[in-house]
Design a protein around this nucleic acid. Structure first.
Length: 511
RNA sequence: CGGGGCGUAGCGCAGUCUGGUAGCGCGCUUCGUUCGGGACGAAGAGGCCGUGGGUUCGAAUCCCGCCGCCCCGACCA
């Protein structure tokens, strides 16, 4: 066995972007489709999304939200109502201009061509996000303060005509949830925005094993039309940042533009305060880049399509059926156990293939626990346990009954080990600096990580520095942000202007 | 939208300069030997060489148009 051989080539160190593509391919998560910029999400990848959906959805319901569904196509005029919002999305909107096709037969070649016909008087935009069309519904639905708060979420696809698509991280069409809420007061809406922000932070940490820095976006980086944008920023293994989830306080910008108004407690007509918030299939890209290694995907247990895969080892024909039966029996027993509130997901790989082939396939697919059972194990009442988060050669033969008892704890242990590893990596990759010279010097290295600095510059000054080093302010961490302990806190002097400031900014390169 | 590269079997590629009508590796199918492990042997299936036109006795190969994809940049709530 050659120690250097990795299942994925190139390795992370050799070519990180290509490694990422290869991990997706090897794990059979998704592929590029015939449609430009769009992906086909394959069962192993879609299973992850379904789990993310289920688990987030429970959190949304538990915090009082209801699901609904709004149209894919938005009348163009809706997008013209809020100027800043419209401009923010203008360059990436797909537009539907016709509603019929007519078949034309080429007299020479005999081939049939379908020609768009029936031009629409008013074009539709394929939703890049649904603030406008949901806002229009809210305007109809809300009459009195008694109708508030209105707490709606939709699971949907959206389309943004991106210049450079990348599987999961940035595709033209992607799946997401978008929450839209309307409130009586600014304070309530801000509270909602912050509450969801915390939900996202917890979800990333407790379900995806990804530590995030929670913070606020600067004016430059805000959602078009928002008064405040909160973000959770994740670091992946090339030390770049990924904006993993955002929640926006939209003030009265949309309610005034779309007339979402209500009769207040004092009898006056008032405009609602609205919010919107979302996470997308980008979370899958984030978790791939955060956890996987040179042998492929590593799935955090809670969102693993299968959590335990049992591989029957059948060296002799006469014991073959006994081994298969034992595997199925163990699977049934394990499925009656729960982990994190859900039945454990167990798969028996009974395909007629070599054991090694199967083993490598599940390694590349990132299954948290692999179990092997052979004739010898049946006699000794043991199972061979292998963990995806540990070295490939690491095996533990445990008593079968013990394993059944411990399975849930073991999954939890794997979650924690992934989280701890990600925290250690992130914390080691965030530096602090107080001077402009140090700031400039920081960005010369290949994978510079993030930089935490006192900041009091203007939006123009922020943009200039960002352009110079191809970085952005990822966020201004909020007081409760889970920052590495070693970082300085409290007042400092802005690295650019020298002005005394309480504000500290987190800078980094991003996806 | 600028700059570069590429479209040949499911995947990865050679063949293109120097036209003579398609090959390699992996994968797939069957059989056999193996197998607590990504094994090996034999046989086999699979391609109008992106597309439309042109040159030629003859085009994957030369010429022109079109389409698509990838990388770098610009852009990216």
């Amino acid at each position: 066995m050659s120690a250097e051989k990795t299942a994925i080539s190139p390795t992370r160190a050799q070519d990180f972007p290509e490694w990422y593509q290869q991990v997706i391919k090897a794990a059979d998560l998704a592929e590029n489709s015939e449609t430009r910029g769009c992906m086909v999400i394959k069962p192993w990848g879609y299973g992850i999304w379904e789990l993310i959906q289920q688990q987030l959805d429970r959190r949304f319901k538990a915090t009082g939200h209801q699901n609904a569904y709004f149209p894919l196509l938005i009348p163009l005029s809706y997008l013209e109502k809020e100027a800043e919002h419209a401009e923010g999305f203008a360059t990436e909107c797909a537009v539907v201009t016709h509603h019929r096709l007519e078949a034309h037969k080429d007299p020479v070649t005999g081939k049939t061509k379908m020609i768009p016909a029936g031009e629409l008087a008013e074009p539709y935009v394929i939703r890049p996000t649904s603030e406008t069309i949901i806002g229009a519904a809210f305007a109809r639905w809300i009459e009195s303060y008694r109708d508030l708060p209105l707490l709606i979420n939709q699971w949907a696809n959206v389309m943004r005509w991106e210049m450079r698509p990348r599987l999961f991280l940035r595709t033209a069409e992607f799946l997401w949830q978008e929450g839209h809420t309307a409130h009586e007061t600014r304070e309530e809406a801000l509270e909602e925005t912050r509450m969801i922000h915390v939900q996202y932070e917890e979800f990333l940490r407790d379900h995806l094993a990804i530590p995030v820095i929670a913070g606020e976006k600067t004016e430059n980086e805000r959602f078009p039309g928002a008064d405040m944008t909160l973000t959770v920023e994740a670091m992946v293994q090339d030390r770049k940042a990924i904006q993993a989830g955002t929640s926006h306080y939209l003030g009265q910008n949309f309610s005034k533009a779309q007339n979402i108004s209500f009769a207040g407690r004092d009898g006056t007509v008032q405009h609602a305060h609205t919010t919107s918030w979302g996470v997308s299939t980008r979370l899958i890209g984030t978790l791939i880049m955060a956890h996987s290694d040179d042998d492929g995907l590593i799935l955090p247990p809670r969102v693993a399509t299968q959590q335990i895969v049992i591989i029957p080892i059948t060296p002799k024909e006469d014991s073959r059926q006994a081994v298969l039966d034992a595997c199925q029996a163990l699977a049934s027993t394990l499925r009656n156990q729960t982990y994190a509130g859900d039945p454990i997901r167990v798969h028996v790989d009974a395909r007629d293939l070599g054991g090694g082939v199967k083993k490598w396939e599940w390694i590349k697919k990132g299954v948290p626990i692999r179990i092997e059972i052979g004739p010898r194990d049946i006699e000794t009442r043991k199972v061979c346990v292998q963990r995806r988060d540990q070295a490939l050669a690491a095996k533990e033969f445990c008593d079968k009954e013990d394993f059944i008892q411990r399975a849930s704890d073991l999954l939890d242990e794997i979650h924690r080990s992934l989280l701890d590893k990600a925290i250690a990596f992130r914390d080691a990759s965030i530096a602090a600096c107080e001077s402009l010279d140090d700031f400039h010097a920081h960005w010369s290295s290949e994978n510079p990580g993030w930089l935490y600095t006192p900041w009091a510059g203007s939006p123009e000054q922020e943009e200039a520095l960002s352009k110079q080093h191809k970085i952005t302010i990822r966020c201004l961490p909020i007081p409760t942000a889970d920052l590495p302990g070693a970082l300085p806190t409290g007042p400092g002097n802005c690295i650019l202007t020298g002005a005394a400031t309480e504000v500290r900014a987190l800078w980094g390169r991003s996806y």
